[in-house]
Design a protein around this nucleic acid. Structure first.
Length: 105
DNA sequence: GGGCTGACGTGGC
DNA sequence: CGCCACGCCAGCC
């Protein structure tokens, strides 16, 4: 067969969770980076959707943000959780990715 | 099926 | 740094 498996939230969720679970403390990752690592480079939006319904407390979803370092809407606790592990947040409410982006070795 | 939405990304100004 | 237009694509109505 040559049909492509339909990319949907279900098929991505597991992979995304696994990746997010591995983000080290004090480091962050972007939706786009996660999408690429999962093998779906053009599905950053879907990753965001998945994070929206992610089990809070089980996963360090606060370490996930946009490529500009902007934090997630409707997730007020994110900033505190980040600062709690030593991550700096600028006055404009963004995380300087240059310093905290997880460089996978 | 068509149109809109959105925890997105990139490039231009 | 901010705003915006585009491109993108699954989910939802």
């Amino acid at each position: 067969m040559h049909w492509a498996k339909k990319t949907n939230e279900e098929s991505l969720r597991e992979t995304v969770y696994e990746i997010v679970a591995q983000i080290p403390q004090g480091r962050v990752l972007t939706y786009g980076a996660i999408a690429r690592l999962a093998g779906y480079p053009n599905h950053s939006r879907l990753v965001g959707r998945i994070m929206r319904g992610a089990p809070d407390g089980q996963l360090p979803c606060h370490r996930v943000m946009s490529s500009s370092g902007r934090l997630a809407p409707h997730f007020p606790a994110q900033a505190n959780l980040l600062m709690a592990e030593g991550i700096e947040i600028t006055k404009t409410g963004k995380v300087p990715l240059k310093q905290y982006l997880w460089q996978i070795e």
